[in-house]
Write a protein that binds this DNA or RNA. Structure first.
Length: 209
DNA sequence: CTATTGATGGTC
DNA sequence: ACCATCAATAGG
């Protein structure tokens, strides 16, 4: 039988379209945070398709991690973190910004990766700021309505990217978790060194050319 | 460039 | 009361 050749959508040629499987997320949050760098976040709604390359993540590794919301125990809000991996954990912060996380590890372990910044790839104005967890959610239109979504079967998902070599990965303390004692110093924030779309860290000498 | 502050609502 | 934030503002 003749092979059906799908039409080429401009700008999508050679871009992977296969979702990262649930097994990708059923691993330690720090591993997932590292390997999500370079992957593509996708949100489809109707004809709209928004794509961003993930360039900054943070790992929240479990109940014992005092910076992790799961440290509060199993509550209505944190319940999704204790469930299967590869689900969206979205919450509202400071009454006006949303943060998008992906649940990691096996059920029973409350861990997740916060997506902190992407580079606009498709469906987003190139000048639109997508650095920072709140701005990124605003750009994609991610809200509490997306909480608990299964990234295998929802219009919100992640596909494999080109991968980022270790030499281009930087690590540092997570942002905004000073309340977490010794856990605040752990280098669980990862970003792509040479990306111009990494969020600015608060009160540090951020050298720019 | 740095530092400060106000906005605003879910959660416990 | 406490935030896994952001934009606007004031000042050097």
């Amino acid at each position: 039988m003749a092979l059906e050749v799908p039409p080429v959508v401009p700008g999508t040629l050679s871009r992977p379209t296969v979702r990262l499987p649930e097994s990708f997320y059923t691993r330690p949050a720090l591993t997932v945070a590292r390997e999500l760098l370079g992957a593509h976040l996708v949100l489809e709604e109707g004809r709209q398709r928004r794509v961003g390359r993930i360039v900054e993540t943070e790992a929240y590794i479990g109940e014992h991690d005092l910076a992790c919301h799961a440290a509060k125990g199993l509550t209505p809000r944190t319940e999704v973190m204790f469930g299967p991996a590869g689900r969206a954990y979205v919450y509202l912060i400071y009454g006006m910004h949303h943060c998008f996380n992906i649940v990691t590890e096996a059920p029973g372990i409350g861990a997740a990766v916060l997506i902190r910044a992407v580079e606009p790839v498709e469906g987003l104005p190139p000048q639109l700021r997508t650095d920072g967890p709140g701005r990124l959610c605003r750009a994609f239109g991610i809200t509490l309505a997306h909480n608990r979504l299964d990234l295998q079967i929802s219009p919100l998902y992640v596909v494999e990217g080109e991968g980022v070599p270790e030499a281009r990965v930087a690590r540092g303390p997570r942002v905004g978790v000073e309340y977490a004692g010794a856990w605040a110093a752990e280098p669980f924030r990862l970003w792509v060194k040479d990306s111009r779309h990494v969020s600015r860290r608060p009160a540090r000498g951020a050298r720019r050319s």
